[in-house]
Each structure stands twice: as structure tokens, then as C-alpha cells.
Computed example of a mutant assay.
Amino acid sequence: MRQKPGTRKSHGEKVVKDIRRATRKQYSAEEKIRIVLDGLKGEDSIAELCRREGIAQSLYYSWSKEFLEAGKKRLAGDTARAATSTEVKDLRREARNLKEVVAEQALELRLLKKSMLGDGGDDE
């Protein structure tokens, strides 16, 4: 049995697509902000800016929209924001430490109660 030519081609296309996805450049927040601000300055056209940065114009416009919406929310007084990974790690570490303290105090309390009952704490 031979495979259909279309099947082999679709598998090859999938491999190429996976490779492109794996090697796609990831832009940091700072890079995105720099690119959007360069576009807002208006020194170069958006098409030229996108060619120079190697991004699609649609990607630039989505970043620009996100950037402006975030600024609008911030100026409107919406101060809620996503925590950074270091903040999350710090909060998890603090929660773990607090849980340990509570566990130690619960153990001490249990031992004190047992010692009170074992000593015959009822004689007055």
C-alpha cells in the first residue's frame, strides 16, 4: 500500500509548522513597549517599523491596542495587575513559612493540653 501524496505533504507541513513555532522569537514586555512607542513616535511608517523588527503589522497593532488599553485602565484608577513570577514565589514562600508556624503552634498547644490532662489538672 502506498500513502497518498497529500498525506505525506500534510505531515511535512506539520513538521515545518512545529519547527517554526518552536523557533519563533519571543518578545519581552520591554521589547514590545519599545516597538509600540517607536510606532507612536511616528518617525517611520508602521510598515517600515514592522519590517525592521521582523513582525507582522497585525501583531504591532494588537500590541499597540493592549498597550493603550492598559494605560487607559491605569489612568482610570484600575490598579489591579498581574503579579510577577518573583512576587508569586515570594508569596508562596511566605505562605509556606506561615503554615509551618501555625503547625508548630498547634503542636505546642496539643502538647500543653495533654500535659495538663496527664498531670491531673482537675485538683484545685
Rank of each mutant, 00 (worst) to 15 (best):
K72P: 01
L59W: 06
T7N: 06
D18Q: 15
E53C: 08
K32M: 12
K41D: 14
R51G: 02
V16Q: 12
Q57E: 14
A22V: 04
A80I: 09
I55W: 01
A56H: 11
K14M: 10
K72E: 15
W63R: 01
R34K: 11
K14L: 12
Y60H: 03
D38H: 05
G6M: 00
A83R: 12
A56K: 11
T7V: 14
D18G: 05
L37K: 15
K32T: 11
K25V: 14
S64E: 15
V16C: 05
I33L: 05
K9E: 12
V15H: 07
L75M: 11
V15M: 07
Q26M: 09
K32E: 07
T79G: 07
E43L: 08
G77Y: 00
A82G: 04
R20N: 14
Q57M: 05
L40M: 14
D18W: 05
R24M: 09
L68F: 12
I35N: 01
E13N: 15
S28F: 04
R21K: 15
Y60Q: 02
A80F: 06
R20G: 00
K9N: 05
K14W: 08
D38G: 04
Y60P: 02
A80H: 09
G6E: 13
E66S: 13
P5M: 06
P5V: 11
K4H: 14
I33F: 07
E48T: 12
I33Q: 10
K4I: 08
K4L: 13
E69K: 09
R20S: 07
K72W: 13
K72S: 15
L49Y: 00
A22Y: 04
A76C: 02
K73D: 13
S58H: 06
K72V: 04
E53H: 08
K73Y: 10
E66L: 09
